[in-house]
Amino acid sequence: MAKDTIEKPGWRTLPLGDVLPAGTAHEFKTGDWRSFRPVHDAAKCTNCLICWIYCPDSSVLVEAGSFKGFDLDHCKGCGICAAVCPPKVTAIAMIDEREARKGAQ
């Protein structure tokens, strides 16, 4: 087991009263317990970005007005993006996370 080498601040140096810099949740990767993974089909996508609007965890990444990808470090696999993708488009499918990981190896 890897030894924990992070030096944790004591009470004298810890920021006062639980005040932290903003946006640190981004550094905490919370997507590792996902059961389902969203998969995007660029050929079908119309870039309506309804998935981006509905994603509760800001995990749909957009660049210059176009779908860019999923932030799989934070996506929980809730499937809302796939559910709100318009029926005529269906550009997002949810696949089994374990199968996806096996495929990646």
Partner: peptide
């Protein structure tokens, strides 16, 4: 910009309470 009142579990809560005591 900062956040206030973040989750503070086994490894930091005690230090924050010590700050209060002090």
């Amino acid at each position: 910009p900062h956040s206030l009142g973040a989750l503070d579990l086994q490894d930091y809560y005690f230090e924050h309470r010590m700050q209060l005591a002090e």
